[in-house]
């Protein structure tokens, strides 16, 4: 099941390509910056403060989560490209277990997502968020678990989809709803019941909430509950990813 050479190769290839294609890196950084500074500042006036936190500060954890969502799902979706351009066959026909390919892909998505997430963390002083040093490591851990889980979702999508034509569909039907319903952009109190329900069944909500705890010092749920939920979710999506990837016909 665990073939370290295979995991290493799959991981290393994705990371190598990421650093080679700078456009991907810059492109994925403009989005959070737009949200944070354009939308965030624009909406700030009409927002009633939660304690001492203004709107840009409030959505800062959400922007970190957004970076994780986009980066990890996009990274996993590259399986579709690999299939379309043939490279996937090269890996699939090698004497390696498919589970290891999934793990390699998951770790690659997590790595890239962490790199992007950490860059966003560096913006904290710009929105006057003070990060406690002791919280940095736990924060990275939470981001890692969440990213790994999301890469799993990406792999399931990639295994089920037969071409990259549907990428826009994924964007509109999976990535955007996941993010909008995660409480990244608004507080969880006082929502209409149906929205509250959707937010509650979205696993990302607990990731965003946990990140908010570590960044801003408050959260809706208890850290223990958030962590338990995230871990469970991560295990579940990994299992699903392995299952669907193994079952796929290539």
């Amino acid at each position: 099941m665990i073939d370290s050479a295979c995991i290493h190769m799959v991981w290393r290839r994705d990371v190598l390509r990421y650093f080679r294609e700078k456009s991907q890196l810059y492109g994925s950084l403009t989005r959070p910056v737009l949200w944070l500074f354009i939308l965030g500042l624009g909406l700030r006036g009409g927002y009633r403060e939660v304690g001492t936190v203004n709107y840009t500060q409030f959505i800062f954890p959400g922007i970190i989560a957004m970076t994780s969502i986009f980066t990890s799902i996009q990274s996993a979706i590259s399986i579709i490209w690999d299939r379309e351009f043939g490279f996937l066959k090269e890996i699939l026909v090698a004497p390696v277990p498919r589970t290891s390919i999934v793990i390699g892909k998951g770790l690659a998505g997590t790595t890239l997502s962490l790199i992007q997430g950490c860059i966003i963390l560096l913006l904290a002083p710009l929105v006057r968020v003070k990060l406690a040093l002791v919280n940095i490591l736990p924060l990275i851990l939470v981001m890692a678990v969440m990213s790994f889980a999301l890469t799993g979702i990406g792999i399931v999508i990639a295994a089920r989809m037969t071409s990259f034509q549907g990428f826009g569909t994924i964007m509109n039907f999976i990535i955007m709803p996941l993010w909008f319903l995660s409480g990244a952009l608004y507080p969880l109190e006082g929502l209409p019941w149906w929205l509250a329900l959707l937010v509650r069944i979205n696993p990302l909500t607990y990731g965003v909430d946990m990140i908010r705890r570590l960044v801003l010092g408050f959260s809706f749920y208890s850290p223990g509950f958030n962590l338990a939920f995230l871990t469970g979710f991560s295990i579940l999506t990994t299992m699903a990813a392995v299952y669907f990837f193994n079952r796929g016909e290539y």
Binding site: R13, L88, A94, V96
Partner: peptide, 22 residues
């Protein structure tokens, strides 16, 4: 149909193959 990673160099393609075949 081609099964190379065309964003990598020839040598990198070969190196990854050698890696996965141990």
């Amino acid at each position: 149909e081609p099964s190379l990673d065309d964003r990598l160099t020839a040598r990198e393609n070969l190196r990854f193959h050698a890696m996965i075949y141990k």
